[in-house]
Simulated assay, not measured.
Amino acid sequence: MSSAESAMVPARVGVLGGGRMGAGIAHAFLIKGAEVVVVERDEAAAAAARERVSASAAASIERGVLEGPLEQVLDRLAVTLDRGAFADRGLVIEAVPEDWELKVASLKDVEQHLGDGAVLASNTSSLSVTGLSAELAHPENFLGLHFFNPVPASTLIEVVVGAQTAPEWVAAARAWTAGLGKTAVVVNDAPGFASSRLGVAIALEAMRMVEEGVATAEDIDNAMVLGYKHPTGPLKTTDIVGLDVRLGIAEYLASTLGERFEPPQILRDKVAAGELGRKTGQGFFTWT
């Protein structure tokens, strides 16, 4: 790790939620030398979060991305149930599920534990950053930092600027992103931002094509991978993200941008059947 990188990444980072995305975010800062605290809702979730980060860090050591030993790396990681652990963090990122009421309640509670000058960010992939900030005492210190799954391999962070986000935090977010070895795209707050809006539009049309019998999921994905050089097709990406997550985003976009984002019946049926993608073993593809 270069001194330039370490200078651009906050020394102390907090993450609320240690699921797949939260653990990935913790990993991203951990391998760049930050001290990271992950706060979870109960002991079982905390143990699972620690295991996710530990396994991810071990894999990075095996690939030569991170210098070990693993025990020294994990010395910079704390997992707790106490949100008071955020008090000394310069940056705290909320990574709870994509539910408006849950995010609002979580952000409002976390804000009460932050020290002066700390930045609070949401990893939301579609919800209004301006709307979320309206619920906070210090909306100027809030912005969106939309990481992509899988976080360790992804090279993109979408920096979402709310109506009251202070300009200096946008500049800081660019620097943090560079320090993580990723690229920032800065967008003004709008439904679905840039990435989710475009990604979901393509995915929904791919689903309609499967529904109409135009082609198989595999052939539709291959058309985008081989013809347009997408690293992963829209349906496999949907499986990785989670069909339930994609459904929630599509419903939100349909409510804000109109019927062109109305989820197709095949998506609703798969979610109702518990076919949520990679995390359940079945989505548009079978995962083992």
Results as ranks from 00 to 15, higher is better:
187 V>C: 02
173 A>R: 10
23 A>F: 07
112 Q>C: 13
206 A>Y: 13
112 Q>M: 10
26 A>R: 07
114 L>Q: 01
25 I>W: 02
259 E>G: 06
139 P>W: 05
190 A>Y: 11
94 E>A: 10
200 V>A: 01
89 R>P: 00
101 E>D: 15
212 E>A: 14
246 R>D: 02
285 F>D: 01
197 R>L: 00
233 G>R: 02
41 R>H: 07
271 V>N: 00
70 L>W: 10
196 S>C: 14
156 L>N: 10
285 F>A: 01
128 S>T: 13
3 S>M: 09
241 V>W: 08
225 V>R: 14
95 A>F: 10
161 V>T: 10
172 A>G: 04
210 V>M: 06
161 V>W: 06
97 P>M: 05
286 T>M: 08
45 A>D: 03
268 R>I: 01
265 Q>V: 13
130 T>V: 15
85 A>M: 08
101 E>H: 15
262 E>C: 07
205 E>L: 06
288 T>F: 11
164 Q>R: 15
229 K>V: 06
270 K>N: 00
177 T>C: 05
283 G>K: 11
254 A>I: 11
53 V>T: 05
187 V>P: 01
29 F>I: 10
115 G>Q: 06
156 L>D: 03
36 V>K: 05
176 W>F: 04
194 A>K: 04
92 V>A: 02
83 R>F: 09
54 S>M: 07
160 V>T: 10
276 L>W: 08
266 I>G: 00
